[in-house]
Simulated assay, not measured.
Amino acid sequence: MTQGTTQGGTRAAVGDSEFDRDTAVTRREPGVYDAELSAGWTIINAVNGGYLLAVLGRALSDALPHSDPFTVSAHYLTASQPGPAVVRTELVRGGRTLSTGQASLFQYDAEGREIERIRVLASYGDLDALPDEVRTSAAPPDIPPVEHCFGPEDGPAPVPGSSAITERLWLKLDPATLGWALGAPSGKGEMRSWFGLADGRDADPLSLLLAVDALPPTAFELGIKGWVPTVELTVHIRCRPAPGPLRVAITTRNLAGGFLEEDAEVWDTAGRLVAQSRQLARAPRG
């Protein structure tokens, strides 16, 4: 069960990987950060929502008294494009165990006008200070071994222009959720996959913000192809993930009025539920 490696044959470390470089922010002044959105994380020419959430999450990690995201809720206002961006943060409330802040990401249009792309409200804390007790009825998704799963390299891109982000991810999808790739979608609205970063970097709380939004849309298994833009995405980070590949399961139960929800769970190699999310997305027409 192996993930990718760098060109030198070694796994990238947290803090020294493509993901870290591409989500980096530079503090211009207190509460204001400059960022460069990479074209490497695009899906059909728009920047992936999970990647964008990680950029904002990194700025909030620096701006708030606590460094670990516990819950992050984002509204995607306009489609972000590769290139320069500005993140503005504000401390809403600082407490002993939790601090709450808000952040917005801005870009400029052709006339130089500032456009708000995303607005986030988040609570941060210290994941290492959480108690060890777990009482749960949740169970990890049943995904076949990696050698019996398939990655983007095993078939054509599902939609034109969708290959950039897949080159930066290590995905091995459950064959039971790949009917869409064979022209026979199941209609169940499910997607399951082993997940990691292509350079082998282990997961951390910030990369979990990417993981919940990095699989092919469940709309594909509903028989609908095309861009599925996120309207709102809320992520709960439950604990710091253990090293090794993650298991991600996403389900959609209701497509109505041109919108669908996606519920995601992310599990680590220790069998722990490390992240959960729900998003509302606009369904493609067709």
Rank of each mutant, 00 (worst) to 15 (best):
L182N: 10
S207G: 01
M1P: 13
P145G: 11
P241V: 01
A85F: 01
K225F: 15
A24E: 08
Y33K: 07
L121V: 09
Q81A: 11
M191R: 04
C149S: 02
V92S: 00
G187C: 06
L233Y: 04
A219Q: 14
P245K: 01
L255Y: 12
P175F: 12
S162A: 15
V72P: 04
D268H: 05
D142A: 14
G101M: 03
L130Y: 03
N45I: 07
A46V: 09
G244D: 05
S163K: 12
W267G: 03
T252C: 11
R28K: 11
G271L: 01
G161P: 11
P229W: 13
E133I: 04
P245E: 08
P284A: 08
P152W: 10
P145H: 08
P284Q: 08
D109E: 06
G189Y: 05
G187H: 13
V92M: 13
A35Y: 11
V159N: 08
T218I: 07
G49E: 01
S67A: 15
Q7C: 08
D22I: 02
D154T: 12
D263Q: 13
E114L: 10
T252N: 11
C239P: 04
S99M: 12
D199P: 04
N45S: 11
V228T: 15
V55N: 02
L273K: 09
R113I: 02
S207Y: 05
S99V: 12
S277N: 03
R96T: 01
C149N: 09
E36D: 04
A74N: 04
L173D: 05
L222K: 07
A203R: 06
E261T: 14
R135F: 06
A256H: 15
P131A: 01
T251D: 09
L52P: 02
